[in-house]
Design a protein around this nucleic acid. Structure first.
Lengths: 198, 198, 198, 198
DNA sequence: CATGAATGAGTATTCATTCAT
DNA sequence: AATGAATGAATACTCATTCAT
């Protein structure tokens, strides 16, 4: 029974949700606060989203989709695995750094019951089984098979890359270190060393 | 006025808090539920902790201190940096795997506004400025200076180690992979490769 | 300012109100639901009825008037009091059985603060003070005066007839008994015994 | 998880519920209003009743039980059917007249989805199949079998008695007529005429 | 005129905290 | 000192009514 017509209002609500949840967490973010920040009436949110839970899930979908776009944009299909790895690493870093609220929202989402079902790696891994799939998961499986990467479960590689990257992004946002282009490149190299067979 | 307190009751409250918060999150854990699980009256918690927020912070301190103990226990003081690195890595891994509630509590804490001020590296880095300080931070600074480790900010190294490890522990607890001794060793090696200068 | 109104739209709203209130009660029937069922816009109801309360009252008036028509149709003016009594009893029974939504609406109305002011006998007793008035009230007064009926307040007689009949109609609608023509006749006879002086 | 200890507070809540629901209906009676009238905090109701629906059902149970007590008190077991009929009729009348809020509450309850499952006759009819059961239902079945009463479905007799009586009580409470002892006796006689075979 | 999106007051319920026992 | 009943502020959600299109 959702009839929204005003896409700008919907966007404003999504944006307010991202920013507030990023800063305060779900439970500390009342619907009324979201409405106020979005500049709409308290009841209006419910014209666009059936309830709070659905608002959260749809906000996640929006962030996720925006992030996915950033990842596939300019993907160096067909180039070396190192080159493609760097594409992912750099895109993610930049996305997190430039969209710090999106990043913080995603952390909240994945570390809550909402996101337990999903896993951060799944977020990327489109349902692809073809050769040149544009996901980090596929790239890692390819690297293991080709002998470029260590013989560990793919998920372990993913944890190393994602875990490192999200920790760094988090500390960048908190101002504890600065992720500039040079630093990102150095860390990409370091993580590559963790993945690569020597 | 300082009132009489029963240390066992205090411990029971801390334990109940860890377990419930680990499983449900802060906001989904009412004080009454903590009291019930701890086997004390709802009002009694307030003899030990001024309010819910302080309870959370002190619970963190307790978990943190217990973890610190696990880290310094058997510390191979004086041995090679690789050996000492492995000590930390293995201790943390085992602590997380064997104390999954503590681990889940820590994640909740760090990913919430509660823990924003703190940083996971500070947790380890007890007030040490002496030469042979038994902390991962110091070890990393030592490695950078000695040329064993890459020339990155120490915090970047810490993010790589901690970020990887906590991601892995999380997925182990969720059952997505299995962190047995062998796997832990392999991952320690991989992370070492990320830290080390080649 | 009197604005143009579409009588068919008004009827559609009244019909939707009857059916929904009959099934769900006033408070469980949102204006938007009435509008949807009537096939009009939510705001349009307010062109025909100032607010929800007035809508309810006017719906009652409509049902009431339709019922009154059913009662006077074929009224055996001039025939015996028993015959005229039966006319009323049978008409009401049939009306309730055949218009179960109307009946349920009336019950809702009378059992709510809305209908407190009115009385079910008033519903019948249209502005009649002439001799041969076609209402149950008048018939009862006539019966008392003529000695056919017991010497009770007219309202008491009305309560017996109406109370019995509406209870029976309710249980018929709920399926607890079946009010067919034969049963109705028997019950009309029983109620006559209650009214009649023996 | 209901731990009430203070029976007076529970009673105050039940009383407030009866009075407010009687006057305003369920949906027009906010919990906060009940709490205020009962002289307790808004949250306190929930220590005694899990939610509003349960409060309503338990209030019904209380009223119902009080009414049942009034009916069986002084029941002329073993006396004539007429005598026993009169006992029921008079007791109910007096109960309704003297406990007008209870009466109005019962009407609200039975005419709502809450009470649809139940039926007013069931309220009396304890699970009795023995000879001298003290319920109106049993008495009516006995009367039909013995030939004292008309050959109608028992429920039809019950509708006549209950329907008449509750209509009268309603109008008494609204002040449209006065149910004194004499009037009650006359009406009991009238209803007997409806039941009895002539 | 008709519409239905927007509004915000109103409602049930939860829970941190207090305090009488 | 310990308890847990009582409290009321806070929160998600609904719906009568308005008004811009």
């Amino acid at each position: 029974m959702i009839h929204q017509t005003d896409p700008e209002k919907r966007q404003a609500i999504l944006r307010a949700t991202i920013e507030l949840v990023a800063k305060r967490g779900f439970h500390a973010t009342p619907m009324a606060m979201i409405a106020a920040r979005a500049g709409v009436g308290a009841g209006s949110i419910y014209r666009y989203f059936a309830d709070k839970e659905i608002l959260i899930h749809e906000t996640f979908a929006e962030v996720s989709s925006r992030m996915h776009e950033a990842m596939v944009d300019g993907y160096p299909r067909g180039e070396s695995i190192r080159r493609r790895y760097e594409h992912f690493f750099l895109c993610m870093s930049h996305f997190f750094v430039e969209n710090s609220s999106d990043f913080a929202f995603l952390r909240q989402y994945f570390d809550s019951p909402f996101g337990t079902a999903l896993r951060r790696d799944k977020m990327m891994e489109q349902q692809c089984r073809d050769t040149d799939c544009e996901s980090l998961s596929c790239l890692i499986e390819e690297g293991i098979k080709s002998g470029h990467f260590k013989d560990l479960p793919p998920l372990a590689h993913i944890c190393i890359v994602f875990g490192s990257l999200t920790s760094l992004a988090r500390d960048h946002i908190h101002g504890f270190l600065t992720l500039d282009a040079k630093m990102i490149q150095l860390i990409a190299d370091a993580c590559w060393d963790a993945l690569a067979r020597h």
